[in-house]
Computed example of a mutant assay.
Amino acid sequence: MLKNILSAAALAVLVATPSIAQDEEAAPAPRPASAYATIDYNLQDDRDNILFLDLSNGKRVAIRLMPDWAPEHVERIKTLARQGFYDGVIFHRVIEGFMAQTGDPTGTGQGGSELPDLQAEFNPMPHVRGTVSMARAQAEDSANSQFFIVFYPRFSLDKKYTNFGRVIAGMDAVDAIHRGEPPRDPTRIVQASIASDNKPAPTPQEIAASNPASITATDLTAPAGE
């Protein structure tokens, strides 16, 4: 089942009308102050809701998970991380100026976990730079394991995709993720872990071993309809 964050038609609109997207980012509609929740940036607090992504580019991303926004989605991400589901998974769809998508063990954009799909938990939190949101197919209740990290504000996604967290450290690591659909040399998650589990970070040797030298775009199937 296709797990892209946008239907082909919706993505075509964004690509075909870049001026609209740029205007939206430069001058978003006014929002009530309550829409911008304050996120605690202290990595020592509430460690059960901090997700670490150790990437094959040698950098670490820290994501503040927000169960108040999307409790079932946060629980799913934590469950899969603790199962090691995300370890070794690539960022299979990375669009410059938009987002980086991961969470599919097949690397095609069409896979997911064996757990049931989730009911949507759309909320008013805006898709700003560093937002972490759940990918889905066209059906609203089709999110499963895939998620994406936003490079630049995309308020057109608000209340259409479940926003469940935000990058609080290591956005430079996100910016360094290789672009492509799929990338010729994809960046991958070497290890995903929850901070409170105190799992050791991967060694340089483990990171090096996670970077196969022969992966090319022809080795992977691009998401259908793109």
Rank of each mutant, 00 (worst) to 15 (best):
T216Q: 02
I20N: 03
L14C: 07
Q101G: 10
R136I: 08
D185S: 15
F85Q: 03
R136L: 13
T38I: 09
T162P: 12
E114D: 15
V89Q: 08
G88E: 05
A9D: 12
F91G: 04
A195L: 13
N211D: 01
R166I: 11
I77L: 10
I39E: 13
E140Y: 01
F147G: 04
I77M: 10
F148V: 02
T108A: 02
S19I: 05
T216P: 00
Y86F: 00
P124I: 00
P182R: 08
S214W: 10
F52D: 08
R47P: 08
R93E: 02
D40S: 15
D23Y: 06
I20P: 00
A224Q: 09
G103F: 06
L43Y: 08
N198P: 06
I177D: 08
G107I: 13
N123T: 05
A192I: 14
D158L: 09
E25Y: 04
V174S: 15
P67M: 07
M99Q: 01
Q110W: 09
Y41Q: 09
S142P: 12
S19K: 05
A137Q: 14
I39C: 11
L115E: 11
V15H: 05
K159T: 08
P204Q: 07
D87R: 14
V61N: 01
G84F: 10
F151H: 05
F98M: 09
I189S: 09
D45R: 03
M1L: 15
N49P: 00
A27D: 13
T79F: 05
D219F: 01
L43V: 14
R179Q: 11
N144E: 05
H178Y: 01
I77N: 12
Q205T: 06
V13Y: 07
G84Y: 07
Q83C: 07
T102I: 01
A224F: 06
L118I: 13
G88P: 04
D68H: 00
A201K: 09
T216E: 01
L53W: 07
V132E: 12
S34H: 14
A10P: 09
S156Y: 02
I90M: 03
R166C: 11
A169Q: 13
A135F: 03
M134V: 14
A10E: 15
A201N: 10
L65F: 03
L65K: 15
V15A: 07
L118E: 08
P28G: 14
S145M: 11
Q138Y: 08
R60L: 09
T203F: 04
Y86E: 13
Q146C: 01
T162C: 10
D54M: 10
P223Y: 15
V167F: 09
M99Y: 06
P30G: 07
G180F: 06
D141M: 10
Q119T: 14
P223A: 02
R188H: 08
E226M: 13
S19R: 02
A33F: 14
N211Y: 03
P223F: 14
K199Y: 02
P183L: 14
P182L: 12
A27L: 03
M134N: 08
P204N: 02
A224K: 15
P18W: 13
M171W: 11
T216C: 05
L115T: 05
E114K: 13
F52R: 12
Q205L: 10
N42D: 15
Y41N: 14
D117M: 11
V74C: 04
L6N: 05
D158R: 07
F91W: 11
L118N: 10
K78H: 06
S193P: 08
Q119I: 09
L80N: 13
I20E: 07
P32W: 10
E25W: 03
